[in-house]
Design a protein around this nucleic acid. Sequence first.
DNA 1: TTGTCATGGCTTACAGCATAACGCTTGACG
DNA 2: CGTCAAGCGTTATGCTGTAAGCCATGACAA
Lengths: 238, 238
Amino acid sequence: MTTQVDGGKKAVRGSLSREQVLRGALDYVDEHGLDQLSMHKLGASLGVKAMSLYKHVTDKDDLLDGIVGLMWAEIPAEPPTDDWREAIRRLAASLRDLVHRHPDAAPLLISRQGLRERPLLICHGLMRLMRDGGVPEKCAAALLRTVFPFGLGYALAELSLPASPDQGPCDEIGFIRRATDLLPAEVSNDLIRTALLVCGDCEMTAQFHFGVDLMIGGLNSYLESLSPGMAEVPEGAS
Amino acid sequence: MTTQVDGGKKAVRGSLSREQVLRGALDYVDEHGLDQLSMHKLGASLGVKAMSLYKHVTDKDDLLDGIVGLMWAEIPAEPPTDDWREAIRRLAASLRDLVHRHPDAAPLLISRQGLRERPLLICHGLMRLMRDGGVPEKCAAALLRTVFPFGLGYALAELSLPASPDQGPCDEIGFIRRATDLLPAEVSNDLIRTALLVCGDCEMTAQFHFGVDLMIGGLNSYLESLSPGMAEVPEGAS
DNA sequence: TTGTCATGGCTTACAGCATAACGCTTGACG
DNA sequence: CGTCAAGCGTTATGCTGTAAGCCATGACAA
């Protein structure tokens, strides 16, 4: 039982740290689903009794907040390129990837309230880039407010489809079978066809990028309309 | 106790129906928050013991699904206008309104999986409109896949801001105070400024419409690029 | 060495939870 | 009148979050 590693400073005793508790919680949720997470089970999975967790976490709420923090930390704080358009695309893509990596924990990203530092840093970096690119501040903010919910929301919506995304081309037969399982029996074939169009084909990745480019393209043409020569527009949104 | 209305067919006895249980649950969540909803409390609020609810609902899961159904039902199935651009705007707006009307229940809309009939009907109507408007099917589907997550996600994101949306102009002082309460103490003033830009000003409604128009505008210019004369494009996306 | 102390774990305990199993009453219908 | 199902109640079980307090450990001062 006596551990001795955990170099240097303090707390040689503890085999557990807040970090490990949070990490363990995220792992547990990834593996067993959010509704299965309980202090007892989490403790057990860490080789510890439930109450011991409260030395590292004040609340279950605190635990959940910690999970959210851990997930945000998976997205780099600094934009990976100087081209703001490309940076926006990458951000959207990493938001989507994040959700796909943690399907069960992802809803927490949107339903738990409170400003997090990481997303703020990300916005900060992108605002700088866009300012340098001549995008008015208000437009930049609007775009960010558009991209974040879209990236998260799109991916979250994907999760609720019968077939999980990008696991090979999903045959229409299988899709219809599962879709009609979930839907009331009387839906028309016409509706099923719509379902196939909107949810069915599995080029979700391409369609996602199309959506992002929709926004960037929209902002582009908006900027054009402001100053037809491209670039450098002053204030004046809203 | 003996009720006698509830015209015609069967079950004169029951003072309760599935409808009423679900409605009661949604009301309860609206009033006390999602985490406060329990079968016991819901039963009590309906003047009934917990187990009686199980005559109308198989599960708590079923109850939650019912709540989601009830919320979707608040959005009209048919597009309210023939102009697809306007119809898309209205849809986005009603998604946002829906979330604002049920802040505590709204996360269920995105985190519960399974195809619902209502959103499918909505998509169906809009696809028809857009087809009539000369938008290729794949583009139409992509736009819908963009608008739904955005409308829900944007509104959900608003909820997590320190000040709830549209309750008067939120003074910057108050905002900063609350924001810094939630954030670690060492964040720079620069960051706070970004926070104000992205989350702070309260013209969320205007900014929301701007976001929607970003997408519609993007699709417009995409359509232009396909066939520079406007309207009537064949297949050919993806 | 010998205290003293904070740390991080364990134990016990409790109210609230979802839900299984079963029982009673009521009104409808043969 | 007899039968029945629907709609409610009762009881009970195992799991949940967490309050309160105990105990062993290692760090440090004397």
